[in-house]
Structure formats: structure tokens, C-alpha cells
């Protein structure tokens, strides 16, 4: 990403976000100075605040990387929210049911998230490949189905007899992800996410699979005519995309909540779309973007508490950032080939 493009795109969007943020504070009757002070103090004011910001960063990073992979393949996966939830559900169900030693739990539970999210994303991929069903609508629908499916399970079969709310039994402490900063919620999930970003970048630029995937996204018809099995690519990319988001759900269960409930995500899967776009669909820039949005998420709560600016203002700003960035064309959409 060169300097001009950076300024025209992500950086411009961030500046716009700050201006709009100030406007939102004024609307709420708060001086922007106080508002921003509250926001940044809440996000970066001390080790605990920074740790919490990084917790939010991690939660956004996984679905954003998943979305990045799908978008690069020309597939509009709007379903990271549902994929994240199902990934968390699988990890929570298995983790609360079987006690495992730490090292086994680490791999098994992340794998559960991978499988759960992958299945959920894969449904949309198969529908696309088999029937040509538009993945935008199918992933949106699957988000709702995921919520009802998960809440049915935690209200019914998976509900912990000990729990007060609708949630699974807690995971045994041996299955919790190791904590990076003492007395915080920040686990090694952050490192897993960053490693995944590096791996993705490598896959995109160096491997044949990445080459095929990018070809499918940039020029679907040329890809189809030149050895890329588009049906297979659609299934694979949607599955992997969902799987990455699903790992994210699993790390929230094993690293933060230590149980599964349907309040797992306050909309990370949607915010992650903005993160992926601000990061220019480049895994490493997405890490930076996720940190920026992590500041907003963590600081927004503090801002609401101390400056009385409703944190939902942040959602509005994310939306505007998405709209501004969408003015550039990211991927050659495959809409011309689908009927839906």
C-alpha cells in the first residue's frame, strides 16, 4: 500500500471517523475534548486499558481475516457474525463437556471453532457452488439461524444446571487460554491471530492456492477458463473464511468468557467488515486496523460511562467508514455470473 493510496483510503477514513466522532459528541452535548479524553483514557490509559483494547483487537482480528479471505476470492461473506458464534458454540460445547489437559485443549478447542465456523461458512459456499445462490443473502440469513440454533442449545440441551443465564457450564481452568498480561483478559489468542495474519499473507502471495483464490476474486471468468475450479474455490474459500471467524469465536470462549453464551459477540462479525476494508484486504494492515477499531470498541465503553456518549455512536462511524471506503472497488464481483 503506497502513501497516496493510504491517504486516499484508510487514513482518510480514520480522519473522517474522528471528525464524525466529534460531531456525535457534540450531538450528545459533550465537548469533544472531554469525549476523546474519555475515549483514549479508556482505551490506552494504562496497562489494563491497553490489555482490554487488545482483547477487542483480537476479537475483531479473526473475523476480519476470515472476511479478508472471502473478499479476496470475490465472495461477499457478510456472515462472519454467525460463523464466529457457531465456532464459539462448538468450542464451548466440547470444552464444557470434556476435561482436557492444557496443550490438548488448546488445539482441540481451536479446531472445534475451526470446524464449527467452517461448517457455517461452508453451507453458503456449497449453496453458491451447487445452486448459484448469492452468498450475501445466504450468509445474512445464516447469521440469524446461528443465533436461534445456539440459543436453542444453551436454553435446552447444553444449558448448565448451575448457570443462572442461558449458557453452557464453565470450562475447566485447564482449558483456559494462557493469559499474556497478568490480571487482564488478554490471552495468547492475540498471538494466534497475528500468526494467522502472517500465514494468510504468505498464502496469498506465495502459494498456488492463493494465486487461484486471487484470480477467482479479481477476474472470475479468466480464472474459470484458466484452470481454477470455481465451484471448488467457492466452497473452499467460504469454508476457510468461516473457519477463521470460527477460531475467533473459540478463542473468546477459551480465552475470555470460559463458557459459551449467545452474548459472545456484540457484533464483531459486522464491525470486522469495516476492519477488513480499512485494512485494504491485506492481512498485515488488517492487524493495524483491528487495533484502531479495538481502541474504538474499548474506549467507547469508557466514553459511555464517563462522558455519557452512547457507545452506539461507534457503530454509526463504522458504517460511514465502510461507505467511504467502498467508493473504491475492492474485488471484481461475481454478480455478473449469478442470477441472484
Amino acid at each position: 500500500m503506497n502513501a497516496r493510496r493510504l491517504l486516499a483510503g484508510p487514513l482518510g477514513a480514520i480522519l473522517l471517523a474522528l471528525v464524525l466522532m466529534a460531531a456525535a459528541m457534540l450531538v450528545a452535548g459533550v465537548s469533544p475534548v472531554d469525549g476523546f479524553a474519555a475515549l483514549f483514557a479508556g482505551a490506552l490509559g494504562g496497562p489494563n486499558q491497553i490489555a482490554e483494547t487488545l482483547v477487542q483487537t483480537t476479537a475483531l482480528l479473526f473475523p476480519a481475516l476470515g472476511i479478508c479471505l472471502a473478499f479476496r476470492a470475490g465472495l461477499f461473506n457478510i456472515g462472519a457474525e454467525g460463523q464466529l458464534l457457531i465456532g464459539g458454540l462448538f468450542a464451548g460445547a466440547v470444552g464444557s463437556h470434556y476435561a482436557m489437559p492444557a496443550i490438548v485443549a488448546f488445539f482441540v478447542l481451536l479446531l472445534c471453532g475451526f470446524v464449527g465456523g467452517g461448517l457455517w461458512g461452508g453451507i453458503a459456499g456449497v449453496m453458491r457452488a451447487k445452486f448459484g445462490a448469492n452468498e450475501i443473502i445466504s450468509t445474512l440469513m445464516l447469521n440469524f439461524v446461528a443465533v436461534f440454533f445456539a440459543s436453542y442449545l444453551v436454553v435446552g440441551p447444553l444449558r448448565s444446571p448451575l448457570a443462572t443465564g442461558a449458557e453452557t457450564a464453565p470450562l475447566p481452568p485447564s482449558e483456559w487460554l494462557p493469559i499474556l498480561i497478568p490480571n487482564s483478559r488478554l490471552s495468547i489468542a492475540l498471538l494466534v491471530a497475528i500468526a494467522l495474519a502472517i500465514l494468510l499473507r504468505f498464502v496469498f502471495s506465495k502459494t498456488v492456492f492463493g494465486y487461484d483464490l486471487r484470480a477467482a476474486g479479481e477476474a472470475p471468468e479468466a480464472a474459470r477458463r484458466n484452470g481454477v475450479n470455481m465451484a471448488r474455490m467457492n466452497v473452499l474459500a467460504m469454508t476457510l473464511s468461516g473457519a477463521i471467524a470460527g477460531i475467533g469465536g473459540a478463542t473468546i470462549v477459551t480465552g475470555v468468557l470460559h463458557r459459551f453464551n449467545t452474548q459472545l459477540s456484540p457484533g464483531y462479525g459486522y464491525t470486522a467488515i469495516a476492519v477488513a476494508l480499512v485494512g485494504d484486504l491485506d492481512p498485515l494492515w488488517i492487524c493495524v486496523a483491528a487495533f484502531g477499531f479495538g481502541i474504538l470498541e474499548a474506549g467507547g465503553l469508557a466514553m459511555q460511562a464517563s462522558a455519557q456518549v452512547p457507545k452506539d455512536a461507534i457503530r454509526v462511524i463504522e458504517g460511514l467508514v465502510i461507505v467511504v471506503l467502498a467508493a473504491r472497488r475492492f474485488v471484481a464481483t461475481q454478480t455478473e455470473k449469478t442470477t441472484a
Binding site: I273, A274, R315, V316, E318, G319, L320, I322, V323
Partner: peptide, 16 residues
Amino acid sequence: VAGTGINLIAIGGAAF
């Protein structure tokens, strides 16, 4: 992408 952004704006804006 624009439609997705509009959803966030409207939903967040209403909550705000």
C-alpha cells in the same frame, strides 16, 4: 458494501 454500511449507520444511529 455500501448497503452493509447503511445498515450499521441506521442500526447504530437508532440506538444512539
